[in-house]
Design a protein around this nucleic acid. Structure first.
Lengths: 216, 216
DNA sequence: CGAATACTTGATTACCTTCAATACGCGTGG
DNA sequence: CCACGCGTATTGAAGGTAATCAAGTATTCG
């Protein structure tokens, strides 16, 4: 259920999880009670992978939609990584991509104004959903509220609302009823200044298949 | 020399470096030419450690002061990590801390206004310098320009300037001539809402020694 | 010692926040 | 079934933080 916490700042965690379905968010709470979401987690992600190398997490992870998770003891995962160095490499690489994503968020917050900021976030989420095969016909399940986007972008809910209206008015996206669809990928990408390279997709364009959401 | 580039977005890198002295910054350049600094690197850091697991870096790394570096071939480092799993763990953990730092920057940019934002950055840098033993009497070498702070915080140079003046006027810091000194750590921490836990200092308060910049 | 870079200051503008009120959707319980 | 409540979405108006523009002053460095 939305709101359920799976990891809490300051509380040692002994297990990792993998998302089978649904969305989670990692967030920090400010002294004034406001929330800043610092990462979204989608199916296929391991939201608390970082805890494998941390005594005490510094942020909270909670479900923002109904979701189903698979769990694994940290100790088992740690042993597996030692026995199969390639697995360790893959997971380490995953951590590296998390750095890249977080840093691109910094760019968004520091340089892009509301419209591009939100557009960029939507591009990122759509691309990540695409990578795990959850996009059909330019639309994917996307169970986030405007409040969630507000907490993630640092914009007020009111402004998120107006910004989404602008994106809708320009016929770029549909957002609502738990769905996101991007009508004009190219224009949205240009507006967002979105370059997917920071996501470091594993096999870049392998098998000769081209990703229709991707431009050369 | 300041400005020298040691790694460029899109250019495959085959070696890692360790900073012996000086400051580097990782940054991305916007289409309009503006720069966003997404990480500062201080002595002891490995600024391009991420490239060990990435084919192609997505950002630039360059010196922002005179510095001296030590280099190491990626292949050698990779081999070492396999031969000594504990080394791999330490470096992986280092990557995890980079995630934590980047995410705390997100919090700063999303939630803190100029004064706290800059105060927070200064607290972070001072703490990191302290960890590597480069702080004496509350002051450390700090060769950043106001433009650098501007690029890192997403604030205009003008506003950074005014904000620093306010911090100085409140007798919290001295900044300039390549030095930073914090006069009233407690008040600055409170102003910045700085909690050092996200830096995950290795042995937290080990050996019974207390860090004077740190509060319980 | 001159030019370039960094810093400082004042005035105007703009993006976004906050406040306030209303409308909508949905699940719960009478 | 409808009333109620609560979270979410929407809209309008007013205010504030920070950006931009424009000069001018220091400082550094070759």
């Amino acid at each position: 259920m939305a709101g359920v916490e799976i990891s809490h700042a300051g509380m040692r965690s002994l297990r990792c999880s993998i998302i089978l379905d649904g969305f989670l968010a990692t967030s920090k709470t400010m002294p004034n009670g406001k929330l800043q979401i610092i990462a979204f987690h989608i199916p296929g992600d391991m939201p608390d992978l970082l805890s494998l190398h941390l005594e005490v997490p510094d942020s909270d992870i909670r479900a923002i939609s109904d979701c189903t998770l698979a769990y694994m003891a940290n100790s088992d995962l740690y042993r597996l990584c030692n026995e199969h160095p390639r697995l360790g490499d893959v997971l380490w690489r995953d951590t590296v991509v998390e750095v890249a994503i977080a840093r691109e968020w910094i760019v968004s917050m520091g340089q892009r104004q509301a419209v591009s900021r939100i557009a960029h976030l939507l591009c990122e989420m759509m691309t990540r959903m695409k990578i795990v095969g959850r996009v059909f016909d330019g639309t994917c399940l996307f169970d986030l509220t405007q409040k969630n986007l507000s907490d993630a972008t640092g914009l007020s809910v009111v402004h998120v609302n107006r910004t989404l209206q602008e994106l809708r008015a320009r016929n770029l996206i549909s957002f609502g009823q738990g769905m996101l669809t991007i009508h004009d990928w190219d224009r949205l990408v240009r507006l967002a200044d979105f370059r997917s390279d920071y996501l470091h997709q594993q096999p870049p364009m392998s098998f000769g298949l081209r990703d229709p959401t991707e431009r050369p």
